[in-house]
Each structure stands twice: as structure tokens, then as C-alpha cells.
Simulated scan of single mutants.
Amino acid sequence: MNPYQSLPPRSFWRTAVAEPAWADIDDLWTPKFAIGQDDLLLTAGSCFARHIGRALRDRGMNWRDTEPAPPGLTPEQRRDRHFGVFSFRTGNIYTAAVLRQWFAWALGTEEPPRDVWIEDGRFHDPCRPAVEPAGYASAEELFAAREATLAAVREGLAEADCLIFTLGLTEAWRDRDGGTVHPVCPGTVRGTFDAERHVFHNFTFDEVRRDLTAALELARSVNPGLKVLLTVSPVPLTATATGGHALTATTYSKSVLRAVAGQLAAEYEYIDYFPSYEIVTGTPFRGVFFEPNLRTVTPEGVAFVMDRFFGALDGRRDVALKPAAPESVAPERAVPEPATPAPDPSTAQPTAGEDFWCDDAVLDYYSPR
């Protein structure tokens, strides 16, 4: 006997991947811990993560929106102001460093920055520039709104049974003054880029592991029983600031994030990893879950991922592909014709049916024609 003689079919490439039709590939995840119907669940992360919260809610799970929209807003106003997208109204959290910042600010171990961006007499929050598109009437109103979100983060972490966090990027921009990591590059969604102040950084494996570990330790400091489910977004980088090719930069970024997620899941009993990244990008699926731009995940892809998720939680196998979900993940931002001076991308109107949830999609505006 040798160890390979007793392995199940899913352990072999031929029987698990090559021989089945792609739609029949399953048994990709064995949950480390149960997630029950009544467990209080939080979701945060990159734009792909918003599908997880919606799917949990639609399946009758106990997904928590810690900062519900005030009464009187239209569905469009709630959407534009990022109500009900993630459990926390932080906007997209692409990097482990930004997750650690939000938790540190919420739990009082660090002070959030006091900078504001002023455009046309309105005040915008550099820590979440896309969340309130019309801005605030004053800096005081901005900081009060941010504090409400920090309070919601505190309360959510203290009560939750499981946090589901989707890692998105390793590339980020730091502020030399205080070291804050920005959610997106200043001067893209909002603000003004300052080459003397805003510094590009591509996080390494050790740095991502350090920041993610620190973030989760902060969360468990107020809730020792909190479980964590990590995923990696399959959405490629819109653009890379490394100077390299977008394909190799994407491979680096996703490889680091996937490796960190796997390492932490192997080290800690309370951390698990769900393979949404592999399900969408894996070789056997032949790119079928991407739109022609090879970046946007199709509704069928989202549905396929979530069927595998719930099927594994329910202990089911051979889960059928369900009808398409109503939304895609990250279509490219509409690009105006070049002009002098260039139009402000933060005010560019999306095309009909476009989903603007991915902040980094605005970077396509700057690509050469």
C-alpha cells in the first residue's frame, strides 16, 4: 500500500477535473465549520463580495446589515450611497491593510485620519470616496457619518458568528503623512493625486499575512468565538501601477492572496477558505464565466459559485447550475472620448445596465485608446 491508493476520486486530476463535464465539477470545498441558518453573518471585501451577502440574504441566512439605509431613500439612492452592499458601509475593501485599518479605527487602537477632500464646496471622505457620491456639507458631518460606520463595525464584530472576507488586490497607495493606506488611488475616484505624498506599494506575502492576521486578531479580541471564511476575488486587475503587464501583475496579486488565505486556513481552526477564485478562473472552466472583456464575471458564474457554496454547506453534491443571477460583477467604466482637459472620471456617467460597484474599474478610463 501507498498513500495514493486510498485517496478519493476528487484527489486525482483525471477523475476530478479532466473527465467530468465542467458543469459537473464539484466537491471542491469541505467546510471546516458549520454555518447555520441562525448564525449572524458579516460580509466585507472587494466588489465580488457583494454577491455573497445578497446570496446569503436571498437564501434566508442571517446576513447582517449593520448600517441600514434611513427611511425615504429610493432604491437608486440606496444603491448609489452603498447601503446594503456589505455588512459595513465602508465601501470596497480590496486589501488586508485597509481591513486592518477599519478594525483598528473601530476598536480604538488607532486614530483615523482627519483629512478631507473638498470638491465644489462638498466634503468627501478619502477613506471611502465612493460611498457618499454627493459628499457632505461640512467636515463635521463627514466625520460624524464615518463615526456611525465605525460604531456599526464595532457592534457587528462583537455580535457576529462568522465574518466572510473577500481579498481583492495587493496593489495600493499609501499616504506618506501618517501611513494611511487608501482604498483606491487618490485622483481616480475622488481627490487629487500628489506624487510627493501618495506612494505606490505592492504588498508581499508576508505583509498581507501580517495585516490580515492583525485584522482578525482585532476582531476576535472583542469576539473570541468569531469564525472567519476567506475567499479571493476572481476579478482581474483593471490596471497595474507596477510598470509590468496587467496579466502577470494579476497573477502575482491573486497568487499572494490565495497563498495567504490558504496558509491562515491551515494554521487556524477558526479560519476556512472557500475557492470562489478557482471556480471562476480554473483551467477546466475555460473562461466560460467571464464576459468578452475577460474581467467581468457573468451572472451564470456568480450563480455557479454560490450554488457550490450552499451545496457544500448543505452537504450536497452534484449541484445543478441555476439560472443566471440578475447582476454581473464589474463591467468596465464607460470611457468618454479624449478631451483637453480630460473629463473628470468621477462624474462620467455609466452606460445603460452598467454596474459601477468596483471602484478600481474607473482605472480603465485612463488606458490608451
Score class of each variant (00 low, 15 high):
168 G>K: 08
132 E>K: 12
172 A>V: 06
110 E>L: 06
150 L>P: 01
146 R>T: 03
169 L>A: 03
105 W>L: 11
106 A>Q: 03
139 A>S: 13
166 T>Y: 12
143 F>S: 14
122 R>E: 03
150 L>V: 02
122 R>A: 05
125 D>L: 15
105 W>P: 12
168 G>D: 00
120 D>E: 15
156 G>F: 01
123 F>K: 07
124 H>P: 12
130 A>G: 06
166 T>K: 01
165 F>H: 09
169 L>S: 06
135 G>M: 11
155 E>K: 11
163 L>V: 07
131 V>C: 09
146 R>E: 01
113 P>Y: 02
141 E>D: 13
128 R>S: 11
170 T>R: 14
158 A>Q: 02
148 A>I: 11
149 T>Q: 03
172 A>Q: 12
140 E>L: 03
134 A>D: 03
142 L>D: 02
141 E>A: 15
121 G>F: 12
105 W>M: 01
160 A>S: 11
115 D>Q: 15
120 D>F: 15
165 F>Y: 12
162 C>W: 13
118 I>P: 15
131 V>D: 05
164 I>M: 10
124 H>L: 15
136 Y>S: 05
153 V>R: 09
155 E>W: 07
155 E>P: 00
111 E>N: 01
152 A>R: 02
167 L>Q: 11
112 P>M: 01
152 A>G: 01
115 D>L: 09
146 R>D: 04
134 A>C: 02
138 S>V: 07
135 G>A: 04
125 D>N: 09
160 A>D: 01
111 E>G: 04
147 E>G: 08
130 A>R: 04
170 T>G: 08
113 P>K: 05
163 L>I: 07
138 S>K: 14
157 L>N: 00
108 G>L: 13
140 E>A: 14
172 A>C: 12
153 V>H: 02
156 G>S: 08
159 E>Q: 12
111 E>P: 02
162 C>R: 15
151 A>Y: 07
104 A>D: 01
152 A>N: 10
111 E>I: 03
162 C>T: 14
150 L>Y: 04
131 V>W: 10
136 Y>E: 02
150 L>C: 07
107 L>C: 10
112 P>L: 04
168 G>R: 08
137 A>S: 04
128 R>K: 12
106 A>G: 05
119 E>Q: 12
152 A>M: 06
142 L>F: 03
157 L>A: 09
120 D>W: 10
157 L>E: 00
